[in-house]
């Protein structure tokens, strides 16, 4: 099977609707097919990556720690739009650290999150074969 470039675009806040959790599940399932997967977090989607989310008091499942498993699933290209962060009073330090181990570099631990400008993200979108929206 030829490898295709898949981009998952996440634009919804994590707990107000089911989109974020569904997207994460689909990404993990699709990762089993060893495609070239990238994730983009735009608009309220950037809230999905905030640190220290704890849904204990809401009685709903806390799926926030699952983002940290993305590296194990070889999902290592995570793009966050700078403009979306700034508009919301956020910076990269507010996001949870996400890492992967680089097989081609003696399993060195590397940062998966790339904060990119709108125009950089526009280029990334152009390069994809398949784009899925959540």
């Amino acid at each position: 099977m030829a490898t295709k470039k898949f981009l998952y675009v996440n634009r919804k806040a994590p707990h107000g609707s089911i989109y974020a959790q569904e997207s994460l599940e689909v990404v993990l399932i699709a990762a089993a097919f060893e495609q070239d997967v990238s994730l983009a977090f735009v608009d309220d989607g950037v809230y999905q990556l905030l640190q220290n989310q704890d849904t204990g008091a809401l009685g709903s499942k806390n799926f926030s720690p699952t983002y940290k498993a993305l590296g194990d699933y070889d999902v290592s290209k995570i793009y966050v739009e700078q403009e979306s962060l700034e508009m919301r009073g956020l910076g990269k330090d507010d996001l949870m650290p996400l890492v992967y181990e680089d097989e081609d570099d003696d399993w060195a631990e590397k940062d998966s999150i790339h904060v990119v400008s709108s125009s950089e993200l526009a280029d990334i979108i152009e390069q994809q074969d398949v784009i899925l929206n959540f």
Binding site: H15, Y47, L50, Q53, D54, T55, G56
Partner: peptide
Amino acid sequence: LQPDLQARGIN
């Protein structure tokens, strides 16, 4: 509402 802040990781 405090529990909603906590769920979203807002200090």
